[in-house]
């Protein structure tokens, strides 16, 4: 009996201890988290040579290379942000930025277009 009361008091103490601590949550739209350095957010492409390695490692088929218009397309609706393309790109052209707010009002805007600049040396 006394043991049970003792445990209840102990657990009450634990709960009260937490009353005087700062909140661990963040009021999201007003305050925002800065993601860490390696965060895998919205992909950004610069100086793509169009070699096509990313096509072969992408699990979801989100990447398309349009040779006619010299255009590199990433479909954010399909992208699972795994970071395979970033890791295996031989030119370091694809980087994943810290952008994490990806909601848009038009789904066409979710397909990112980047120009392919410079010829691939291996072709």
């Amino acid at each position: 009996m006394f043991r049970k009361i003792g445990y209840l008091l102990l657990s009450m103490f634990v709960v009260f201890k937490h009353l005087f601590k700062r909140p661990v949550t963040l009021e999201y739209p007003e305050k925002k988290i800065t993601p860490p350095e390696n965060f895998r957010g919205k992909p950004v492409v610069e100086n793509c040579k169009g070699c096509g390695v990313c096509l072969r490692v992408c699990p979801s088929g989100a990447i398309k290379i349009d040779r006619e218009n010299n255009c590199f397309k990433i479909d954010l609706k399909k992208c699972i942000f795994c970071g395979n393309c970033t890791f295996y790109c031989p030119h370091g052209a694809i980087k994943m930025s810290k952008g994490y707010e990806l909601a848009l009002s038009d789904r066409e805007n979710l397909i990112l277009n980047y120009p392919i600049g410079g010829a691939d040396e291996r072709n």
């Binding site: 661990v24 860490p36 350095e37 390696n38 942000f81 395979n84 994943m96």
Partner: peptide, 30 residues
């Protein structure tokens, strides 16, 4: 709250909290 500490650390090194994709064939990503 405590799990958050661990997930924050995962995010720091792997880039994401749960879908880490950090191990690769032959080692680790970084």
């Amino acid at each position: 709250r405590e799990r958050e500490l661990i997930l924050k650390y995962f995010e720091k090194i792997t880039g994401q909290r749960m879908m880490n994709n950090y191990f690769v064939f032959g080692g680790v990503r970084r």
